[in-house]
Nucleic acid binder design. Sequence first.
DNA 1: TACCGCTTGTGAACGCGTGCACAAAGTCAG
DNA 2: CTGACTTTGTGCACGCGTTCACAAGCGGTA
Lengths: 264, 264
Amino acid sequence: MAAQRGQRGGVGGDTPPAPTAAEITTPIPRVADVPAARERARAVPEAAVARLAVYLRVLSAMQEQGAVTVSSEELSAAAGVNSAKLRKDLSYIGSYGTRGVGYEVTVLIEEIERILGLTRKHSVAVVGIGNLGHALANYGGFPGRGFPVSALFDVDPDLVGVPVGGIAVHHIDDIPRVCSEREVSIGVIATPPPAAQTVCDRLVEAGVQCILNFAPVVLQVPDHVEVRKVDLAVELQVLSFHVARRADDAAATGGRQVNGMVVS
Amino acid sequence: MAAQRGQRGGVGGDTPPAPTAAEITTPIPRVADVPAARERARAVPEAAVARLAVYLRVLSAMQEQGAVTVSSEELSAAAGVNSAKLRKDLSYIGSYGTRGVGYEVTVLIEEIERILGLTRKHSVAVVGIGNLGHALANYGGFPGRGFPVSALFDVDPDLVGVPVGGIAVHHIDDIPRVCSEREVSIGVIATPPPAAQTVCDRLVEAGVQCILNFAPVVLQVPDHVEVRKVDLAVELQVLSFHVARRADDAAATGGRQVNGMVVS
DNA sequence: TACCGCTTGTGAACGCGTGCACAAAGTCAG
DNA sequence: CTGACTTTGTGCACGCGTTCACAAGCGGTA
Ligand SMILES: NC(=O)c1ccc[n+]([C@@H]2O[C@H](COP(=O)([O-])OP(=O)(O)OC[C@H]3O[C@@H](n4cnc5c(N)ncnc54)[C@H](O)[C@@H]3O)[C@@H](O)[C@H]2O)c1
Ligand SMILES: NC(=O)c1ccc[n+]([C@@H]2O[C@H](COP(=O)([O-])OP(=O)(O)OC[C@H]3O[C@@H](n4cnc5c(N)ncnc54)[C@H](O)[C@@H]3O)[C@@H](O)[C@H]2O)c1
């Protein structure tokens, strides 16, 4: 079993414990150390990667509205970030702007897609076709973005064979075969918590390298598998924390409050 | 309209870029100047808050299995984090451990619940009862954790009046009345992207202080409203990035690969 | 009571990410 | 061609969060 590691993503900034070395800030910008070549991609901070995905969506919307160029100021405002942060994020992937003008929308889209690996399609398999699994399978936003949902799995015999969102549900025993046939690279786990680890193991055996986990459990995976989790209960609890903090602040500063809401 | 701010949560560590005034950076990095009393709650880093929610779930599971005390080593392993990090996280909320022994499970649960504001129930309203909204409304995990889903809204006349997950769907025009009556403190947006900002504005007008947003748009909210977003497309794209990075690494080190999968 | 082993709690160092501020580099007008 | 203006790209400093390492503290034992 791989050493217990934090599951990155999902909630809060969860930086992985320094994968290795890399990201060297040598005084002298050493040109060639070991791999050296496309080393740049590795140097993009995880937080920046997530934001690049947001920029990409904003850029696509701008492109549809006919925008040709965009300044860091405009783009950052639309993406809800600081303009300096945006420029730094873009600098991680190269210099594609024109000083005094801005960035060419199409160029930026291409480069971000390249860095994010979106030039290739990534087939997605969803396991656990319950409430959430149905929603994911029926969602039209993924295929359009290069993530075709190409396999569905469940353990329930009543569900196996039933088409959901256009494709038939398979039994989980078929995970290895179907995932291999359809070249699935991302597995989504939407099963009840107790089943999540088992399902995860099967996906990993089937060669799936990336997993998006909705079940509120910490998954154990080998080092070469990337896991991100989406934990809605945690999201709600973080919001709850802010309500409480605000209520405390109000109480401390003498403001009245009703049912946790500050009435100023 | 409030100044454009980063939407925290969801993906990566997204610290808001200095809201406006307030949040002064005094030469001496004094954390708390005036209230001082229960100021501790404010000092808990956002990242730690998210992890506390995870610890809480693990602790609840342990309690059900009859555990009385737990060491930082055990708890951290179960939560998938470093034990030092766990102890530091717990230290933000006080000293409730016994050296040489560990933490009493019930005490820890109580204290974390207190800090997260879970001693009070937080009514949740879901807006947009489509694929995702249905899943959320039917999900049994929220009410059990102190987050009763107590109001549903949609614009579709065919949906209004229909019961979903036990409660009837209301028209969005009723947001102010119903949210007020049922003391909703958290609003969940699961509408199509174009409708999200409008829905958000209505929720804010209705006095909702916290919003969990599933629509892939950057919401504009006043400073006193807390927004967290869950962006599944971004999650997939971050995973895609890792596939690409890994493929590059393999190519650089001479490893063979098939369809983006490294064959060692 | 004195000792020993175990675990907490935290001071301090480190590293990463953010934001500032500005030089470099381009455009455009005249 | 020159000079004014605009916007990028980034060096640098700061602050937050993570991690290490260990003193302090507690329970058990003789
Ligand atoms: N529905 C939500 O809004 C929501 C919100 C937060 C978290 N979650 C989490 O997402 C997961 C799914 O939630 P849901 O509401 O869709 O649950 P659900 O009970 O509606 O669906 C679970 C599905 O998984 C299938 N399943 C059970 N064991 C399986 C196995 N071993 N292999 C494959 N499939 C199996 C079941 O047959 C069922 O179809 C749960 O872990 C839940 O905690 C859901
Ligand atoms: N379904 C998923 O798995 C998924 C995944 C990622 C993101 N999302 C996002 O979540 C949101 C909802 O997705 P979905 O698949 O449930 O969409 P959906 O189309 O199934 O449902 C949207 C619902 O919102 C309602 N609606 C439309 N305008 C409204 C308004 N002004 N006020 C209130 N309700 C309104 C519609 O009547 C419909 O019932 C979208 O923004 C989508 O991008 C969904």
